[in-house]
């Protein structure tokens, strides 16, 4: 008898949670999708049609917005640059941060505490406040106006949060796993590569997503640290459509779609990979 009521109240309970959850999710999805769908179809309207009626669906597919934005904004080259900056900065940052995370999380040296705090302080520094000194530094080192000079600050600014994530994850890994490997005679670097790295798959996935998103959307470093058009990245290119005296909303919307699409694709494709990463990394005791 008591088991029965318990079952009913539990299923009613679950139902209430499910309804709440569905409403919540649908609301959020609407907020996200509605503007994006509007952006997408508006990008196929010519500028005069957009300013005359902002809601109307396009009467014909005005693809010229895309071809023109692509050509005028030099978006082909900028996309390649963005991919190069983002991918290399992400890989370097995640790899370095994971190493540092192992060092800080498991070695038990006293200096780790200081270094760790030193990294965390970096979370508080805004890009704009270091812009001028950074430019001075890079011109003195003659690495301004190079791809290397762009990637370096991406990495440096990405490290604090990544080190934070890696350290807190690795700290939570049971010492026993590491000890087993040590008894087998493995060195620290070997343990890092064969024990820590595979176990850290979930945090690596999270780190990769964050790092990728941040680097992709990074804006100020590129235009201050480079002068050559050939080194600029996609956000700088898109921004060119977004301001100033001239205006063509058709071109702007097309450029916005071009800038947004790669990130959405990245997430949709890697989402599954990252998921599997989560699953593989789950610690089974």
């Amino acid at each position: 008898m008591s088991k029965m009521t318990l079952g009913i109240s539990r299923s009613r309970d679950v139902l209430a949670w499910r309804i709440f959850a569905s409403v919540f999710m649908v609301f959020f999805t609407f907020l996200t999708l509605a503007p994006l769908i509007w952006l997408l179809y508006s990008s196929f309207k010519p500028h005069p049609a957009i300013i005359r009626n902002v809601f109307a669906l396009p009467t014909q597919l005005f693809v010229e917005n895309y071809t023109k934005a692509w050509r005028l904004g030099n978006l082909g080259l900028y996309t390649i640059n963005s991919v190069v900056y983002t991918a290399s900065a992400t890989v370097i940052t995640v790899f370095l941060a994971l190493g540092a995370g192992y060092g800080f999380g498991k070695f038990g040296y006293r200096i780790s505490g200081y270094l760790y705090t030193f990294f965390i302080m970096g979370l508080l520094v805004t890009a704009h406040s270091v812009l001028v000194p950074l430019f001075i530094l890079e011109t003195r080192l003659s690495i301004d106006d190079t791809r290397f000079g762009v990637i370096l600050p991406y990495v440096a600014f990405g490290l604090p949060f990544m080190v934070y994530l890696a350290t807190s994850f690795i700290r939570g890994i049971p010492d026993s796993l590491e000890e087993v490997a040590r008894i087998d005679g493995a060195g620290y670097l070997k343990i890092f590569w064969h024990v820590i790295r595979p176990i850290s798959a979930p945090v690596v996935a999270t780190m990769t997503i964050f790092s990728f998103v941040n680097n992709w959307n990074e804006f100020v470093f590129v235009f201050v640290l480079t002068s050559k058009q050939s080194l600029r990245s996609l956000p700088v290119g898109v921004n060119a459509f977004a301001g100033g005296m001239s205006r063509d909303y058709g071109l702007l919307f097309a450029a916005l779609v071009i800038a947004t699409l790669p990130m959405i694709l990245f997430y949709v494709f890697f989402h599954e990979q990252l998921k599997r990463g989560f699953a593989a990394g789950a610690i089974k005791e």
Binding site: L96, Y109, L137, P153, L159
Partner: peptide, 27 residues
């Protein structure tokens, strides 16, 4: 252990310090 620590932590500290320290002290 010390060498391993240096190899794991060193590169991050080096890049981070060289890019961040000068601007912060400057500010």
């Amino acid at each position: 252990k010390k060498i391993a620590y240096g190899m794991l932590v060193g590169p991050s500290v080096l890049i981070y310090a060289s890019i961040i320290i000068f601007p912060i002290v400057f500010s």
